[in-house]
Design a protein around this nucleic acid. Sequence first.
DNA 1: TCTTCGCGCATTGTCGACAATATGCTTGAC
DNA 2: GTCAAGCATATTGTCGACAATGCGCGAAGA
Lengths: 230, 230
Amino acid sequence: MAITAEALPETTATIADRIFDKLRQAIVEGEIPPGSKISEPVLAARFGISRGPLREAMRRLESSSLVERKPNIGARVITLTSAQLLEIYVIREALEGMAARLAAEQMSDAAIADLKRLLTQHRKDVAQEEWQAYFQKEGDLDFHFRIVQGSGNRRLATILCNDLYHLARMYRCQFGMKSDRARDALKEHELVVDAIAERDGELAEWLMRRHIRASRKATERRLAAMRESL
Amino acid sequence: MAITAEALPETTATIADRIFDKLRQAIVEGEIPPGSKISEPVLAARFGISRGPLREAMRRLESSSLVERKPNIGARVITLTSAQLLEIYVIREALEGMAARLAAEQMSDAAIADLKRLLTQHRKDVAQEEWQAYFQKEGDLDFHFRIVQGSGNRRLATILCNDLYHLARMYRCQFGMKSDRARDALKEHELVVDAIAERDGELAEWLMRRHIRASRKATERRLAAMRESL
DNA sequence: TCTTCGCGCATTGTCGACAATATGCTTGAC
DNA sequence: GTCAAGCATATTGTCGACAATGCGCGAAGA
């Protein structure tokens, strides 16, 4: 499933838009490694296009903060520092907390039932010890994605899905996400959904914020361990 | 004062970047009215540049959601609907609430003292019945700007300052902001700063969220009144 | 008179080439 | 041997021109 706010058609009209999607995917999945310099001529040749559309795509990648550009020097793929990663968690805590509150107030009963079905599937995956696939297949992001969509706030969804989720996914691809938090995370997801089903917005926000805070702290510990073993 | 995350030098290196700033300002201040179609040839001629840099600037404006683009058709300046405006308030409530919490935890004593001085100036302005200049001169946004900077979260600052504040300012320029909420807003600002000075992050977040929620409700009332008188 | 088809025009999308700036390598001097 | 200056090269920034798509006007038919 493509994680974007507006479901974009498979083949967008302009080359620049297609290249933007391809480049974003390549960067997020690590095919173009972080910190590597992006040469316009070689990329244009590699995709068989001219530099014009490529530059337009680069400007959009710059706005998404996936590449850093310095005038007259060039563009490099960003390297997520530990501090920046934690910054993203803080922002997600604020935004997704609000999203959970709104979802509790505005989500349709059908959508909530659908969300419960998703969690049931996740529960089965975890029970069958297949939870390595849980995080790998973006099951976690899928849950958060639905909550954000359920908030009904399109701009909120755009900020999270067009920028922050891609950055989070980039981090996951960078360090092979072998979290042992799947069981805890699933439990926390269930609590959030219960609160949404109860239409308790305040509780839903509180639970979602605690959930993301817990994820952040787990990541913090993992980063500290990595620094330790270095 | 330019409201941007990174203080950009007066004359940026590339034409595309300069045009981006100029166009953003023109759009935000209403010089290019909302909904108007943007013709690449005429704009390029007006600025005396080629279409290449202009298109790159347009791509960035598109990412900032100041213009809407349809492939093979063209770009139009966005028209902020009432619903979209309220969506922005909700996002600001979440993000700036978090920013206030972080500011209470991380802002330096010197910065807090500076912030208090700013409020003293605002208090004098309001007392002298010059508060029409308060909102007009972006005094309100200036306060919020400093809190966000004080959070120490650069990405949070980028989201708010590069996108949301410009949209808020665009709305203010669109409908000539004649709010009678200046006194209440100032009082709420003081409470937030007090909480930050006390290093009470939780209270600072709560007060900031209540402040932005009050602003949103005032805007809601104003929008309803406008619809009524139509 | 209203609708519809088709043509022409304007605008957008794309491309290749030129100019300007930064990088690195070589060469010379100390 | 090391540092600095200058040049060569490659890359970025910008431009003008061509191709493709969408829009509007006019003409023809019902």
